[in-house]
């Protein structure tokens, strides 16, 4: 950071000004002339928050994807199917047990096991044959999509959030002035705040686990050079299995989250596979911080785009991806290699 500031003083200055402006725009009430140009502040704040929550959901899906790729160089194109499966199972579990939170645990375990099965039955057999792995996972995703269509039909499901997460809550952020000139604070759905909070906790948890524990050290070492790691007597296949299960479980949990604040239906699998591909391409393949930054960027682009330029909102995402590929092909946080 400091080195960057020393090398590019002008860019750093611009970045600081932009950051200050964004902070001001989020916290201060907007003057009238400003609202005339940019619309109501409430709309802007809501779009920003929705963007970050959507980013949180993307992060949950993409972090598993990027971990698996980073460690094993497996491009798992059936990752979206794991998301969809998680959503359907979460719906079933929540209906059956009546406990929303419990469904997360169950889904994590079940989808994690599915991930392990994939690792053992598919990826281990095709060790090092990346093209074949890619093709096989495309096949798996097609078959899985059809099986799920058969089991759950074409209609969409919604996982019910518990009563204590229903309705909006008031955030200490000024949304604007009311009719009598009093300050109006931002009201935002509780369930989305909870999802955002959970994603941040999970993100920090993974980061801590990767950077502060022995397992994390092994995984990071594996990302850099798995052959040497294996040669040093680390049971690398078990590490692979664990990471794969964890990544799959995260995708499953993301399915429950997506089913709660959006809905679960056929086609969501490819949508989220696309989203996580874009996120990891923008963020950098194999980098957790990259996945977080990419997810928030894409989420913000989608939501701000749908408010301020509805017709081109879809293009915006891919413009960001194209720009990243053109100027920083390894991704924002990726390493050249």
């Amino acid at each position: 950071m400091r080195e960057f500031a020393r090398q590019h003083p002008v860019w750093s200055g611009i970045a600081i000004v932009v950051a200050l402006f964004v902070i001001w725009a989020i916290f201060a009430p907007w003057p009238e002339g400003f609202e005339a140009i940019f619309g109501r502040k409430r709309v802007f704040l809501n779009a920003v928050f929705s963007g970050i929550t959507l980013g949180a959901l993307y992060f949950l899906v993409a972090s598993g994807f990027t971990l698996i790729f980073g460690l094993m160089h497996n491009v798992n194109l059936a990752h979206g199917s794991l998301y969809l499966l998680g959503g359907y199972l979460g719906y079933e579990f929540a209906e059956w047990t009546g406990y929303w939170l419990l469904s997360f645990v169950l889904v994590f375990v079940v989808v994690g096991c599915v991930g392990m099965a994939m690792q053992v039955l598919v990826f281990r057999r095709l060790e090092g044959q990346e093209l074949r792995q890619t093709l096989v996972t495309i096949g798996i995703s097609v078959v899985a999509a059809d099986l799920m269509l058969w089991a759950w039909g074409g209609s969409s499901y919604q996982v019910m959030s518990p009563d204590w997460l229903r309705g909006p809550m008031e955030l200490p952020l000024i949304a604007g002035y009311g009719r009598d000139g009093e300050l109006v604070y931002l009201r935002y759905p509780k369930v989305r705040i909870a999802i955002l909070f959970a994603a941040i906790v999970i993100g920090i948890g993974i980061w801590m686990a990767l950077n502060r524990t022995r397992i994390g050290m092994i995984i990071r070492a594996g990302v850099d050079d798995r052959d040497i790691l294996g040669a040093m007597g680390i049971p690398i296949s078990r590490v692979f299995l664990g990471v794969f299960a964890f990544g799959a479980g995260l995708a499953g949990i993301a399915g429950v989250v997506g089913g709660t604040f959006q809905s679960i239906a056929p086609g969501e699998d490819t949508r989220f596979l696309m989203a996580s591909l874009v996120v990891v391409i923008v963020g950098g393949m194999g980098s957790l911080q990259g996945a977080a930054i990419g997810a928030v960027l894409i989420g913000l682009a989608e939501q701000l785009g749908s408010v301020y330029m509805p017709t081109y909102a879809v293009v915006l995402t891919f413009l960001i991806m194209a720009a990243v590929l053109a100027f920083r092909p390894q991704g924002l946080m990726g390493r050249r290699g």
Binding site: L45, N46, R192
Partner: peptide, 20 residues
């Protein structure tokens, strides 16, 4: 407000709805 067919996330549109 016009939303695409098949939309699942209406958060931003709901927020933009006028009060008065």
């Amino acid at each position: 407000f016009w939303v695409p067919l098949g939309s699942s996330d209406f958060g931003a549109v709901i927020a933009a709805l006028p009060y008065d």
